[in-house]
């Protein structure tokens, strides 16, 4: 990219260099996406079938085809810093219909994994991690529900980690193996103080 360094920052932004140049492509990004997704992401021929049936596309600027293109060209920062990356509902319609037999949904998941490695992640994802770390459940039980369960003849807590908290230790070990809880706590703290 050509840096212009004009004194007026507004002009600098307005006239920002728009050329695609080869040095923006990171072949290792293309490779990483292919490996994590398990699909031949580099084979996309940009027909747009994915976006055409995507439930998120008509209500946002999210274009899964563009993410596929960024994967093909290795445009890592363009893909990973785009907030639209998190608008995929993982419905897999694009995967079922892709004529090249690719799995665009899994490409998105791979890119999200790569984004997380750069601490790019919405906090709601991390809060699920925190909830599971402490209770084993992403959506834990509460007192209203306990009462309702009792009325239905069920145990107040379901026979999961809720009723058998001794199992939570194992879950924590797995999450700690990947240092996931510590990372989640750190990022949430950075964002929310």
């Amino acid at each position: 990219m050509v840096t212009k360094n004009y004194p007026d920052p507004k002009l600098n932004e307005k006239l920002r260099d728009r050329y695609y140049r080869r040095d923006q492509s990171k072949p290792e990004f293309t490779k990483a996406v292919r490996e994590i997704s398990g699909t031949m992401a580099h084979m996309c021929y940009q027909c747009g079938t994915c976006t055409g049936g995507c439930p998120s596309a008509p209500r946002s600027t999210y274009r899964i085809r563009e993410f596929m293109r960024r994967g093909v060209l290795g445009l890592d920062q363009e893909a990973l810093t785009d907030p639209d990356l998190w608008l995929c509902t993982t419905c897999y319609s694009c995967t079922d219909r892709c004529p090249r037999d690719l799995a665009p949904t899994d490409v998105i998941m791979a890119m999200r994994n790569l984004a997380f490695r750069q601490d790019i992640i919405p906090v709601n994802f991390l809060k699920t991690v925190q909830a599971i770390y402490s209770s084993g459940h992403g959506v834990p039980n509460n007192d209203v529900n306990r009462a309702a369960r009792e009325k239905l003849g069920l145990t107040r807590d379901p026979p999961t980690t809720h009723m058998y908290p001794e199992y939570i230790k194992g879950i924590q070990k797995i999450l700690d193996h990947y240092n996931l809880k510590a990372n989640a706590d750190r990022i949430v703290k950075e964002r929310e103080g």
């Binding site: 027909c47 747009g48 079938t49 994915c50 976006t51 055409g52 049936g53 319609s93 694009c94 219909r97 004529p99």
Partner: peptide
């Protein structure tokens, strides 16, 4: 009218 896109569904 030509639309450059494959029909999804």
């Amino acid at each position: 009218k030509f639309i450059r896109g494959r029909v999804s569904n």
